[in-house]
Design a protein around this nucleic acid. Sequence first.
RNA 1: GCCCAGUUAGCUCAGUUGGUAGAGUACUUCCUUGACAUGGAAGGGGUCACAGGUUCGAGUCCUGUACUGGGCACCA
Length: 922
Amino acid sequence: MGVFWLNELPSMELPKTYSPQETESAWYPIWEAQGYFQPSVDGKVAYSIVIPPPNVTGSLHMGHALNATLQDILTRWHRMRGDRTLWVPGTDHGGIATQNVVEKLLRSEKMTRFDLGREAFLERMWKWRGESGDTILMQLRRLGASCDWTRTRFTMDEVCSRAVREAFVRLYGKGLIYRGPRMVNWCPRCQTALADIEVEHEDRAGKLWHIRYPLEKGTGEIIVATTRPETMLGDTAVAVNPDDPRYASLIGQRLRLPLTERTIPIVADSAVDAAFGTGAVKVTPAHDPTDFEIGERHGLAHVVVIGFDGKMTEQAGIYGGLDRFDARKRIVEDLESQGYLIKTEDYKLAAAVCYRCATIIEPLVSDQWFMSMKDLASRAAQATRDGRVKIFPASWEKPYISWLDNIRDWCISRQIWWGHRIPVYYCPNSYVPPRTGSKTLADSKHLSASAPCSPLASVELPERCPACGSTELRQDEDVLDTWFSSALWPFSVFHWPEQTDDLKSFYPTNVLVTGHEILYLWVARMVMMGLEFMNDVPFRHVYIHGIVRDKQGKKMSKSLGNVIDPLDIMKQYGTDALRFSLAESSIPGRDMQLSNDSFLKARNFANKLWNVSRFVQMNLADYQSPENRGPVSTPEPEHLALADRWILDALQGTIAGVTEALGSYNPAEASRLLYEFAWGSLCDWYVEVSKVALTGNDPSARTAKQAMLVYILETTLRLLHPTMPFETETIYQSLKPWLATESTHLMIQPWPQADPSQCDAISAEKFRLVQNIVTAIRTLRSEAIIPPATRTDCFIVCSEARWTDLLGDAEVRATICFLAKIDQLTLGTEKDRPAEFLFTVFNGGEIYLPAQDLVDKVKERIRLERNRAQLEQLLTKGRAMLENRDFIERAPKEEVDNRRATLRETQQKLDWLARNLEGLSG
RNA sequence: GCCCAGUUAGCUCAGUUGGUAGAGUACUUCCUUGACAUGGAAGGGGUCACAGGUUCGAGUCCUGUACUGGGCACCA
């Protein structure tokens, strides 16, 4: 339970086993209690992020975990950099999605929302949201999200609601919001209109029915094809292309509409593609957007045969009352039995479905609220064109701008109850829009024209109609699209329209972090609203991350049953491992497939970090941190050994690289660099090398190494903290006795600064040679199957003058001996080489392991022949290149020189090999 | 139909300005040595989807093809 041992045990030893569950639970409340999540008052510049508010429905899924992890990495990083950092959390009421959840609950009680009535239903909604609305926020805490919870918002709290009303009233006043009858996408299941962008297209198997429409007079006929035969009852024309010779003579004549008593005209319209099907189209103005437009052009009547409930209307005659799909079946049967059905084809169609419930959309004419988008959209597009809103990765800019350029007006009214009710009021003398589904187009036009009072848009509940003084005011029944309030989120969270300090300090925010699936639905609209109401963009950067997919590349979804629950991963591998894994997989511009391998890798990395920290700590017992050296002491240059200079150089590269990667929204690169440094450099080499000094009998060398280890580890912890906050904080606490600092928590330590003075390319190259020699010896031992426990002597012939000093250095020699399990290392010339030996080469010379009884001459010969074959291949390739005159003449001189050097090295190695092979046979 | 990505080791994926292809995992061999077997050392394994082109040189740049995924439009 918790990490109380940290506070209770004076030794502060890290437990032997890394168990994330124990170390992760304690820090969050401590950080929060310290007020670290709130913006510091003394930061130089503000840095703010506003969370994409998750719906109050459901709980944290992997997409949320990714989104939140990336935001938290940025937030923690900027906080460490000393910025006045704020991450605002909150939730979205989620409109239709949330209402659907509660309606489902009602259904299990055999009730509908209409049974309850609006008021009781909304009570139910609020109760439900009170019970489960904060679940996801608790889970974000669990993930480590360093949000400022004192600023938590909900899109339907009073602060946000007021902003919604204010925005609506202002837009209405400018004439940018209007109401009117239009053809909209209607979801018969959700019982509401949807915006175009809320309609998804799914490929579904369908049929194309060919139906014969006989001419009213004479014996001719026209064959039309349709995927929705039930709409034929609402046909008011058949259209053909004016240039289609097949039908030229028929234009203006009338057809008998099968199954009805009606006749309909044949009209010519250029929207008809003569090449498709029969070239003749049945026209149903009341039930199809294209037909609606044809109908407008030709003055065709609307015959509404499908109602808002998805059932056939009275106008559908004997089919009235049937569900639209049952009616389709019946109509096809009747057409067939009466000889009107010519043929039926299989047909693949992109069905328009509701993005919330996948029900097939019915295009219907209805009276709705719309928002004019052209002007707002072009300003938004301009903001990206001139760089005020930059999108990362930039490849999303083109589709984003193209969407804005081709925008159509936004249907913002919804016929649901959960949401912001439209702040428009009607008196008895004003036009009242027809209740959806009950009136036709013609009715509402009439009512609108004759009303003496105008509807009243008002932020606060008005007392009376300003025109006629009536106090009998009725509010509009519709609620706003949930994305309307989301669009105001970046400033409504700061109490707009109040000019609060927060609004002034933190708007515009620095970055919006989101997936590309809501780029248009949400991001574009925030930019438009920000420009409109704040006269500035809502964020400078849009960081678009990938969508989490499963191993088959499918989007994770409950219905597919392929979800990986982040809570399970946290339980199994730890939160830090989950975070690291998400960050490391988050390649810019690409969706990610998370596999168990990825979590495993991250968990093992966390474990490695834990253990190297234990190693450092176990070796600090006699170490006193130097005083008055600032928070972390860099060892004095004169005490630095080769390996120290090398790791400092590598650390500088890592600091610079990680900082650059985070700044360019590339957490995968940052994670990769940290993994490589921590594991590949620190653990694999530096720690091993340090054992020589730590176990040796030179106290000053020991102390210097201890200082180095503390410094390197502590810096690594800081670099890793934004990604793995819990583990790094735990380790940091255990390291505090040696830090010579008043520091409290790692979370608020400064981000490491790259220090060019610590770069040391020469030492780096020297150390690489040491690595090269050690690896060569290890390989040799492994190939010759010398057990690790067996120590041997080593004889080196170094033919590069520049390395002889290095290999003469006692410390370097001790290092090589330790790492390669060598007893006695001798430097000499070729003529002194031992008589019996194992042999290999490195980039600067020859390595002999004098090992008389270990040499099996036959095996050794085979081994060396194999090595020779490899080298010869390289040599042939290298020679061919250098014999190519074009290469010599055209390639950069440096490149050619490099090749020459490499070739010389290879040749030399080969010579040595050949000579030793001779020696072996002789 | 248009546009955008992707195609690299058995698997999951990196690869910045063109210069002899990398990681994790899996596999083989050796090792439980006082940080770590959730580990260490070494090794095998790749015509970088295909076909052209540019270039001294292409995984990387250009064109085309195939397949996969995504976005947009049409869909009577």
